[in-house]
């Protein structure tokens, strides 16, 4: 029985601790209730939560750089957190926590729109402004989308870059090296790449799924090069598989014969662009994307923009147009040998 008494005492202690704590800090609880009631932000700092798809990869770190810059300019408290493994369900859980903490704006880069939709709707119901950036969410889950590129333009942009580098009349095989078979974004891009490839003379030989694993990406790249003698190009469409594929081409001594293209920040791919393995890197200005997102968040928190607004003033970016509920950043960019050194992100 002794052990049970011990256990009961411990449980009792917890039961006592819970109300004890809430009473401990009256000033703090008052502060929270103040934050939960959504008085227009004036006297206090606006709190904006920026949620990337994956935290800790260079792409989103460069977005964060821009976001920080804007936050300093505007005097905003910026919270930057996201799942390090890119699990969209963890994104949803973070949104739920921010909803309870009562931030003013949540900016979400949904890794899978349907998964986070529920949490985003709840946040809106609690009076928090929700916008999406980098990738769009479902319609009713957000008020604005900071649009840098749609899946359509990314997929077609990749294929066009490859066709331009190879010459439009080139025949032969191409391979896509993706991330996981379940990666929502990559799958969406592949869906738009397929029709674009079908219109060209290139044949999609296979799609490999190495996961977010650099060794597997490198290995898969090596294997497809030995397997398909008529291989002309490889699309590396994740931050891991793009450099992996480029490295595989170099190690197989096929630099220049098998071209690699994909999405990446310029800094990560500079060395491959200079050796000629990669001729085009497709992306947009990620620093500006983060910068614009925070400006939109601020404008929304101070009610500067609402449904129907057509332009927004975004600091050093000047005026940006709003089409419907999409804030347009501009088109996708193609980095080549000539211009890649001008960018540092």
């Amino acid at each position: 029985m002794n052990r049970f008494v011990c256990f009961c005492l411990a449980s009792l202690a917890i039961a006592l601790a819970v109300p004890g704590c809430t009473n401990n800090s009256p000033s703090r609880t008052a502060e929270t209730s103040g934050e939960n009631s959504k008085a227009p932000a004036g006297s206090r700092k606006i709190r904006v939560a920026l949620l990337p798809k994956i935290k800790g990869i260079s792409y989103f770190s460069s977005c964060y750089k821009g976001a920080e810059e804007a936050a300093n300019e505007l005097g905003i408290e910026l919270i930057y957190d996201g799942p390090t493994d890119g699990d969209p369900r963890k994104q949803a859980e973070m949104i739920e926590q921010w909803t309870i903490d009562g931030v003013d704006v949540i900016c979400v880069a949904p890794n899978a729109p349907d998964v986070v939709a529920g949490a985003m709707k709840e946040a809106r119901a609690a009076g928090i402004a929700v916008i999406t950036w980098d990738a769009d969410g479902t319609n009713e889950s957000r008020s604005f989308f900071v649009n840098q590129a749609s899946a359509q333009s990314i997929g077609e942009g990749l294929v066009n870059a490859m066709l331009k580098d190879l010459g439009p009349a080139t025949e032969g095989d191409v391979v896509i090296i993706s991330a996981d078979a379940t990666s929502a974004n990559q799958n969406a891009w592949i869906e738009t790449m397929k029709p674009a490839l079908a219109r060209s003379k290139l044949k999609l030989a296979t799609i490999k799924y190495p996961g977010e694993n650099a060794s597997n990406a490198l290995a898969d790249g090596r294997d497809v090069i030995s397997k398909y003698p008529d291989l002309k190009g490889i699309f590396g469409i994740s931050t891991v598989s793009f450099p992996g594929a480029a490295e595989a081409v170099e190690q197989s001594g096929k630099s220049g014969q098998v071209l690699v293209t994909g999405l990446s920040t310029p800094n990560d791919m500079k060395k491959f662009v200079h050796t000629g393995t990669v001729r085009s890197v497709v992306l947009w200005n990620t620093v500006d994307l983060g910068y614009l997102t925070i400006h939109v968040a601020k404008a929304l928190a101070t009610r500067e923009i609402k449904d129907g607004t057509t332009t927004i003033k975004a600091g050093r970016l000047g005026e940006k147009s709003i089409v419907g509920d999409n804030v347009m950043l501009g088109d996708i960019m193609v980095f080549t040998k000539d211009n890649i050194d001008q960018f540092d992100f």
Binding site: G56, T84, G244
Partner: peptide, 16 residues
């Protein structure tokens, strides 16, 4: 011996 073979070092190395 293995990591310098990879194109870059990122935090996902050695996952699984």
């Amino acid at each position: 011996v293995d990591v310098p073979r990879l194109p870059k070092i990122e935090s996902g190395i050695g996952s699984e």
